[in-house]
Design a protein around this nucleic acid. Structure first.
Lengths: 191, 191
DNA sequence: TAGCTTTCTTACCATAGGGTAAATTTTTCT
DNA sequence: AGAAAAATTTACCCTATGGTAAGAAAGCTA
């Protein structure tokens, strides 16, 4: 929990009452590899702040293939925000890729922080703006880069994620098969 | 400008002073087809609310190919949010696809509305949350759907956009060439 | 309406990446 | 450590999409 408090404090004066509120609605959890926090098709009420380890969110398409939306490591949030903000059933599964520690929140309760402590509004707005920017960039990269270029960029942008993931997770994030990724890796070594 | 005021009022009690503030920092513009509002490589200070017509934002890759990030029609906002929120030069070009009317804002000035009228914070947070959801969905669609499926979905989701755009614009949004889109359209008719 | 420009279609061949399956390597579990 | 399971690599062929180029259609402009 200290990690989250520290992260918030780096950008916001955190009143003791607000800190207390956060403690009162959070639950720290240690998860083992393979554990599933949210399962496609169920209702989603929770959101998670990662303090160690690595998780990913992905969907399973009609042919049973997995497509990774997001990896989350230390200091990232993860959930199914599509489900949370549209009140639909989850389209995503969130699973643990390594033993991890997370802080669990009920998303609605956490959202209540904005009404109680309005200073969180602009903090959260800023977080969302940055998230939007990273999504815009990802879409543009997907449109204009080859698979090999996307892989290079991934390694450069997220060196800390690669350590925790299997290649087929990365492939499913890049939008290619693991066989293609394997070929790309071979070509890289040759150079 | 009434369109924007109306849109805001549908979700927020808009104080007269806030409405006045919006008027004081906005400028209505009529644009002709082909006009460029933001050009790749320049600094970006403006953001636009569309009241009629259609615009798009796109980047040009190292081979000169265009990739469309967004179409904007009535009641949508458009700018280069990557540049605005990272203080970098624009990676995007924003151009008019048809004669259009927009309301122009200086992005920083507009941002000041949150400090002056804090009720806009949660309004904007909600807008950003919905935007994030649509971007998540777009990424997942890009990962799991074929080009033909993405085209069908585009027509279904944005019937009002298709009227204003050329096919090669849509192709560059879907991540395919206009020749491929042409083939897909032929196949659709056959069925 | 004619002429010019842009967009769309079609055809051809090229290529990046996919699907299946088997062999190999790595990881996990006991 | 050794066995079992999972992941990766490799090979083969296949398919969706790309690139180029030319002709047809549509849209603009005078």
């Amino acid at each position: 929990m200290e990690d989250l408090i520290k992260k918030i404090k780096s950008r916001l004066h955190l009143r003791p009452e607000a800190e207390e509120f956060l403690y009162s609605i959070s639950k720290e959890k240690t998860l083992s590899k393979g554990e599933v926090l949210i399962r496609q098709g169920q209702t989603v009420k929770k959101t998670f702040f990662v303090t160690s380890g690595c998780l990913r969110s992905y969907c399973i398409d009609k042919n049973g293939k997995e497509h990774t939306l997001l990896f989350a490591i230390k200091d990232w949030w993860i959930s199914d925000y599509i489900a949370i903000h549209t009140d639909e059933l989850s389209t995503l599964t969130v699973e643990c890729l390594t033993e991890s520690k997370v802080i669990e929140f009920n998303a609605k309760e956490l959202d209540g922080i904005h009404a109680r402590f309005p200073e969180f509004e602009s903090y959260q707005r800023h977080n969302l703006e940055r998230h939007v920017v990273s999504l815009h960039k990802r879409i543009l990269n997907q449109l204009q880069l080859s698979a090999a270029e996307r892989y290079d960029l991934f390694l450069k942008q997220y060196p800390d994620i690669e350590q925790h993931t299997r290649n087929f997770h990365i492939a499913s994030y890049l939008g290619i098969t693991q066989q293609s990724l394997s070929r790309i890796r071979v070509e890289k070594v040759k150079k």
